[in-house]
Simulated scan of single mutants.
Amino acid sequence: GSEADYIAPWNSEATLGEETGSPTLTELCYPNVTGSCLKAPYSPGPQLMLYTLFGVGAVLAVFGNLLVVTSILHFKQLHSPAKFLLASLASADLLVGVTVMPFSMVRSVESCWYFGPSFCTFHTCFDVAFCYSSLFHLCFISIDRYMAVTDPLVYPTKVTVSVSGICVSISWILPLAYSSAVLYTGVYDDGLEELSRALNCVGGCQTVVNQNWVLIDFLSFFIPSLIMIILYSNLFLVARQQAKKIEHTGGKTKSSLESYKSRVAKRERKAAKTLVDAYMGFITPAYIYEICCWCAYYNSVMNPLIYALFYPWFRKAIKVIVSGSVFKDHSATMNLFSEQM
Score class of each variant (00 low, 15 high):
Ala4Val: 06
Asn11Trp: 02
Thr15Gly: 05
Thr20Asp: 13
Thr24Ala: 08
Leu25Tyr: 12
Thr34Phe: 04
Ser36Asn: 10
Pro41Ser: 10
Pro46Ser: 02
Gln47Lys: 13
Leu50Thr: 01
Gly55Lys: 07
Leu60Tyr: 04
Val62Phe: 14
Leu67Asp: 06
Pro81Thr: 10
Pro81Leu: 10
Lys83Ile: 01
Phe84Val: 01
Leu85Pro: 03
Ala92Tyr: 03
Met101Asn: 08
Ser104Leu: 06
Val106Gln: 13
Arg107Thr: 05
Val109Ile: 13
Phe126Asp: 01
Cys131Tyr: 13
Tyr132Arg: 00
Ser133Phe: 01
Ala148Leu: 07
Leu153Phe: 12
Thr157Ser: 12
Lys158Tyr: 11
Val159His: 12
Val161Tyr: 09
Val168Tyr: 06
Trp172Arg: 06
Leu174Thr: 11
Gly186Trp: 07
Asp190Trp: 08
Asn200Pro: 00
Gly204His: 05
Thr207Val: 15
Val208Gly: 03
Val209Gly: 02
Val209Gln: 08
Asn210His: 13
Asn212Lys: 11
Ile216Val: 15
Ile223Gln: 00
Ser225His: 04
Tyr232Glu: 07
Leu235His: 12
Arg240Met: 08
Gln241Ala: 09
Ala243Gly: 02
Glu247Thr: 11
Glu247Cys: 03
Lys254Pro: 04
Ala265Thr: 12
Glu268Thr: 14
Lys270Trp: 04
Ala271Asn: 11
Ala272Pro: 09
Lys273Glu: 04
Val276Trp: 09
Gly281His: 06
Gly281Val: 06
Ala296Trp: 15
Pro304Asn: 05
Leu305Trp: 03
Pro312Asn: 09
Lys316Phe: 11
Val320Ile: 13
Gly324Gln: 12
Ser338Gly: 14
